[in-house]
C-alpha cells in the first residue's frame, strides 16, 4: 500500500494543476453551455438547450468547417516543411544546438509583435510587393493581407516550431544502426526512409501534428491581425461571444463543440497513422 501512497504524494502537484486548470474550467463551461441566458452575461442556472440550437446554426458550422480546413492546410504545410528541417537539424553535427536555438528564438518575443512584422511584409505597399514591383515581376500589388493566404502564412509561421521540435526529438533518438541494417538488407535511401525512418519516428510526427493542429484550429490573434477580422475562425467567434456579445452560453457551447471535434480528429488521426504504419511494414 505504501508505495502507491507515495506515488500519489509525488503526483499531487500535477493532480492539483490538472484539476484547477483543466477539470474545473471544462466542468464550468459544460454547465454554462446548458444554462439559460439572462442577457448581458447573466447566467440563470436553468437547463436549456438554446445555446446548442444557436451553435448548430449553419453560419457557425460553416466557420467551424472553415477553421478546420485552414488549420489542416497549415498543419500539412508545417509537416512538409518541418520534417525535412528537423531531419536536417538532427544530422547537422556540431551546428545542431545553434540551429535549435534559431528555431526557438521567435519564442523570445511576443506573437503579436511578430505578426505585425508580417503585416509589414504582406501589405499591398509592403516589402514583398515593393520588391516584386521594382524587379518588374508584377505590374500591380498582389493582395496577400486579409486573405486566407495570410492566415495560413501566419499559422505556419507561428506553429512551425511546435512541429519541428517533437519530430527533431524522435529523429535525434533514432538509432543509426537501424538505417545501416536496412541498407545492408538492400534498401536504398527512399525505401530506408519510408520503411524504417518514418515508421520509427512516427510518434514525433503524431505529437507534432497535434501540437500544431490543436492551437491552429482555435487561434484568433492571427486572424485578428492578418485579416483585420475580415475573415474569422471559430476562435474569433468564441472570443466575441464571451467578450463582445456577453453570450456565455453560446461561447461555452461552441467551445464544447470545438473540443469534441478536436478529440474526434485526434482519435481518427491516431487510428489512421497506427494502422498505416503497420500496413506499410507488412
Amino acid at each position: 500500500m505504501k508505495p502507491i501512497r507515495n506515488a500519489y504524494a509525488l503526483l499531487s502537484p500535477a493532480i492539483v494543476w490538472l484539476t484547477l486548470f483543466l477539470v474545473v474550467p471544462v466542468a464550468l463551461i459544460t454547465v454554462i453551455s446548458f444554462s439559460t441566458d439572462g442577457g448581458y452575461g447573466l447566467i440563470i442556472y436553468e437547463f436549456s438547450l438554446d445555446a446548442y440550437i444557436q451553435a448548430f446554426d449553419p453560419f457557425y458550422l460553416q466557420i467551424i468547417w472553415q477553421s478546420v480546413v485552414w488549420a489542416f492546410v497549415s498543419t500539412v504545410i508545417c509537416l512538409v516543411v518541418g520534417y525535412p528541417f528537423a531531419y536536417f537539424i538532427a544530422h547537422s553535427g556540431k551546428w545542431k544546438n545553434i540551429l535549435l536555438i534559431l528555431v526557438m528564438i521567435p519564442f523570445w518575443s511576443n506573437l503579436l509583435i511578430r505578426l505585425y512584422a508580417w503585416v509589414i511584409l504582406l501589405n499591398n505597399e509592403g516589402v514583398i510587393n515593393q520588391f516584386l514591383l521594382s524587379i518588374g515581376l508584377i505590374s500591380e500589388p498582389i493582395t496577400m493581407l486579409y486573405t486566407p493566404f495570410s492566415i495560413v502564412v501566419g499559422m505556419v509561421y507561428g506553429f512551425l516550431p511546435f512541429m519541428i521540435l517533437p519530430i527533431y526529438a524522435s529523429i535525434e533518438q533514432l538509432d543509426r544502426r537501424y538505417l545501416e541494417a536496412a541498407e545492408d538488407l538492400g534498401a536504398g535511401p527512399v525505401s530506408t526512409f519510408l520503411r524504417v525512418t518514418l515508421p520509427i519516428t512516427m510518434p514525433g510526427v503524431i505529437a507534432g501534428v497535434f501540437m500544431t493542429f490543436i492551437p491552429a484550429v482555435s487561434v484568433f490573434v492571427i486572424t485578428d491581425l492578418l485579416t483585420g477580422n475580415r475573415l474569422v475562425m471559430i476562435g474569433n467567434v468564441i472570443r466575441d461571444a464571451f467578450v463582445v456579445e456577453m453570450n456565455w452560453q453560446l461561447g461555452s457551447a461552441l467551445s464544447i463543440l470545438l473540443m469534441a471535434l478536436v478529440l474526434l480528429s485526434v482519435l481518427i488521426f491516431t487510428r489512421f497513422t497506427s494502422s498505416r504504419s503497420k500496413k506499410a511494414t507488412r
Partner: peptide
C-alpha cells in the same frame, strides 16, 4: 558501391532488429 548494392549481409553486434516489425 553502397551497402545495398553489395551481395553481402551483416549480423550486427547490437542485432539492430527493426523495433516496429
Amino acid at each position: 558501391l553502397e551497402p545495398y548494392q553489395r551481395d553481402v549481409n551483416t549480423v550486427f553486434q547490437s542485432y539492430s532488429l527493426f523495433p516496429h516489425m
